[in-house]
């Protein structure tokens, strides 16, 4: 029982470290993106620990394997200069930090004992590709079809945007 929880804390620490590494890295965006990969893979492991097997694999496959690679691809293609804080931004930093600090504090209230009820018992095969697939193609079929339209629109949009010259 304790092993799973131990793994959760290890991966949680890795995820937070990776996120901080991305946000606080002002020197180069490639190192930031690589550190984001650490967060994505750790989150995939946490999903598996939370019995979301299909989501965990898709997290690694789509986020770590495709989306962050796209970021890296663009960062490597474009030459980036080192950025600096402007005065306007510094004010924004203080405001943002204060507001989000309050948010995180509120979230930590959930750590108080008794904030959540006990987790429900899991049905057989919960989170596997069979169950999620059944739910996706019966109850949520319309949403699934709608995402295909979204993807098509995004694909066309990306091609048009990145094309050099359009007749």
């Amino acid at each position: 029982m304790m092993d799973g929880a131990l793994f959760f804390y290890i991966f949680a620490a890795l995820a937070v470290a990776g996120a901080l590494g991305m946000v606080l890295n002002f020197r180069n965006a490639v190192a930031g993106a690589l550190s984001l990969v650490g967060t994505m893979v750790s989150l995939g492991a946490i999903y598996v620990l939370l019995d979301a097997y299909l989501i965990g694999v898709l997290q690694v496959l789509v986020y770590a394997g495709a989306i962050v690679v796209l970021f890296l691809f663009v960062v490597m293609l474009l030459n980036l200069r080192r950025e600096s804080f402007s005065a306007e931004r510094q004010r924004a930093v203080k405001l943002a930090a204060a507001g989000l600090g309050v948010l995180v504090l509120l979230a930590f209230l959930s750590l108080l004992p008794g904030a959540f009820r006990e987790a429900a018992a899991l049905p057989e095969g919960f989170g596997g590709y069979r169950q999620v697939g059944m739910a996706l193609f019966t109850d949520w079929l319309l949403a699934f079809e709608a995402t295909s339209l979204l993807l098509l629109a995004a694909m066309v949009g990306a091609v048009i945007l990145a094309k050099r010259d359009i007749e």
Partner: peptide
């Protein structure tokens, strides 16, 4: 339950 749900929510808030 091997992962405490509240801790997962807290991690989510931090991220």
């Amino acid at each position: 339950m091997i992962v405490p749900i509240e801790h997962a929510i807290a991690l989510s808030a931090v991220l």
